[in-house]
């Protein structure tokens, strides 16, 4: 293709002198500021703004209602409708976790247990929420549909220890999840 030479636009005198453009700019900015003060910024409605700019002011307002279905919050373990903890302590998530946030101690299921044929479950399961980057790899890699990223995002603690979610906490966050594949049922 031939080279196309582009001419710079020829400026009129008023534009060259720069002052009028400056004044126009001031009014533009000011108008925007006034709009923003009155909560009429572009997109303020869609973003559920607090009435100042487009910002939602956090502790009073939160965006829980706006959270998308694919939101990735805290990872948590789940039980199913039979009350069985689904994790079989295969440790795949521990290996895949990029920042090494997960620590699993596998344990044996005693033969008296109705789910004895599953053989393993975690004796301890800890996710360090300071390390977790919410990547969702653990959810993706889990062969048992046992770990899911929930919508919880307020994870607080006053010490490093408090920020480590142990097994109990993980099940509390995860809760019961129904409609998952049940490959350990009696019938199968």
């Amino acid at each position: 293709m031939a080279v196309i030479k582009i001419q710079r636009p020829k400026l009129r005198f008023g534009e060259k002198i720069y002052l009028t453009a400056l004044c126009k700019g001031f009014f533009l900015t000011l108008r925007h500021a006034v709009k923003s003060l009155m909560g009429k910024s572009m997109g303020a409605k869609d973003l559920a703004s607090s009435g100042l700019g487009v910002t939602m002011q956090y502790p009073e307002q939160n965006w829980d209602a706006q959270l998308p279905a694919y939101y990735r919050g805290a990872p948590a373990l789940v039980t199913d409708e039979q009350g069985r903890e689904r994790c079989v302590a295969c440790q795949l998530c521990e290996f895949i976790c990029p920042p090494k946030a997960i620590k699993i101690t596998p344990g044996e299921i005693p033969s008296a247990d109705p789910w004895a044929k599953v053989e393993k479950r975690p004796a301890a399961f800890a996710i360090d929420m300071i390390r977790c980057i919410y990547c969702g790899m653990c959810e993706e890699v889990c062969p048992e549909q046992a770990i899911f990223l929930r919508k919880d995002y307020v994870i607080l603690g006053t010490s490093r220890k408090e920020m480590v979610h142990d097994k109990q906490k993980l099940y509390a966050i995860g809760g019961v999840r129904t409609g998952l594949v049940n490959k350990w049922n009696e019938l199968k």
Binding site: T29, H32, A33, S36, L37, S41, M42, A44, S50, L52, G53, V54, T55, Q57
Partner: peptide, 13 residues
């Protein structure tokens, strides 16, 4: 505050 308002933000409040 002023720059926040100009940029549709809230600023330190």
């Amino acid at each position: 505050r002023f720059c926040a308002v100009i940029q549709d933000r809230v600023g330190p409040n």
